[in-house]
């Protein structure tokens, strides 16, 4: 914007002991270079990073902060504020189960219990075989055909325990 305040420069030392691989590092740098000119670029950048790397690694935070001229605290604050951004590498598939009222009215509480028992994990956990990470979500907009869940951005409605087991088996087979 023409009347924007002059650009502040916040000196940040990028972590010297970063565990980010060279490839991941260049992915993050490419994304920042591509999107930094957008007004309010941080969310688009974080979405792109998660889309490429499947999560936002801790060591990507100082790098993004440096590239977007933000403080590490600002970037960390945003990553941790939004439920969608994952800070740990997820399993091969991410499953979001809807916990909201319309799904509750159709038995989602029982579905949650069934899912946790079948997967052997609680929310935010990843199964031991690395296949599934379980996350809660508050409404998928499928409120007339619940209970609902989403696997890797694909919605499933009217999920009975039997249908859950079938979806799970299918996900475990898929790579």
């Amino acid at each position: 914007m023409s009347d924007a305040a002059p650009r502040r420069v916040i000196p940040i030392k990028v972590e010297p002991l970063s565990t980010l691989s060279t490839a991941a590092r260049s992915t993050v740098l490419d994304i920042c270079a591509r999107l930094e000119s957008l007004p309010g670029a941080l969310l688009p950048v974080l979405h792109a990073v998660q889309e490429s790397l499947r999560y936002v690694p801790k060591d990507a935070v100082p790098l993004i902060a440096h590239e977007l001229n933000l403080s590490i605290a600002e970037v960390h604050g945003v990553v941790t504020f939004y439920h969608y951004f994952l800070q740990e590498r997820p399993g091969r598939h991410v499953m979001h189960i809807c916990r909201a009222e319309a799904c509750q009215a159709l038995g989602s509480v029982a579905l949650e219990a069934h899912a946790k028992a079948r997967l052997g994990v609680d929310y935010h956990g990843t199964t031991r075989d690395g296949a599934i990470t379980l996350e809660p979500v508050y409404c998928l907009g499928n409120c007339a055909l619940g209970p609902s869940l989403m696997i890797d951005q694909r919605l499933h409605g009217r999920v009975t325990p039997e249908r859950f087991d079938a979806l799970l088996a299918h996900s475990r087979e898929a790579t």
Binding site: G40, A41, L42, L43, H47, F81, Y82, H83, F85
Partner: peptide, 25 residues
Amino acid sequence: VRMGAGAYICGEETSLLESLEGKRG
């Protein structure tokens, strides 16, 4: 089109604007 990231509060208009600006909602 800009994507949210899973925060109910961002349906509140001023939080949404903060989020669009790249901040916590």
